[in-house]
Design a protein around this nucleic acid. Structure first.
Lengths: 91, 91
DNA sequence: TATTGATATTGCACTATTACGATAAATATT
DNA sequence: AATATTTATCGTAATAGTGCAATATCAATA
């Protein structure tokens, strides 16, 4: 074994667990903190802000995006990330 | 690599992440659900309630206890688990 | 005290997560 | 078009988490 048995739990329990898991890493908490503070920013700012390499940050951003906590707008060369207020309400 | 670089983040960010991580598994959400519903119960009830083997449940209970979300009173042969209201307030 | 019952711990197999260098992809600039 | 800039993806090493059978522990009871 080794994999979480999600199918044995309710949708609501899985939904809460998924949201909680997304915030279960300090880097992702730090990203949310930062986005709350600056309202919206480009990805590069977050990479500068965090003590992690760019690919690692990109990976964390992807996870936050996948759980719907943040969204990203492509603006030419850069990507503007911001918190999805709807998702934030769930918390 | 592979381990979370906790030392690079603030205490608050790590504290939030630790709490969130504890709730980042549906089994642990289910345990909290159950304890909220019945107020307090003995460990065996949780094992019966969950679709997981006893050692696995015991492990999840340990994690919840370690993060301070629940507490356990030894009552003779059994252990009575209940939610720590103080910890719940943090959420 | 031998047995039963409840919970915890150990040991192990398996899967998932974290981190980062290298590199790709795509737009902007020269 | 060539180059620089920004972000994503790939590949991979290291660590962490999940689940369970077997077993240990410890109180209750026969």
């Amino acid at each position: 074994m080794g994999a979480t048995k999600r199918e044995h739990f309710t949708d609501k329990q899985n939904a809460i667990a998924t949201l909680a898991k997304a915030l279960g890493h300090p880097a992702r908490v730090a990203i949310m903190d930062y986005l709350l503070k600056v309202d919206a920013c480009i990805c590069g700012d977050i990479v500068t802000e965090l003590p992690l390499a760019q690919p690692t940050v990109s990976q964390h951003l992807k996870e936050l995006k996948n759980t719907g906590l943040i969204k990203g707008n492509i603006e030419g060369n850069t990507i503007c990330y911001f918190i999805d207020e709807k998702a934030l309400d769930k918390l």
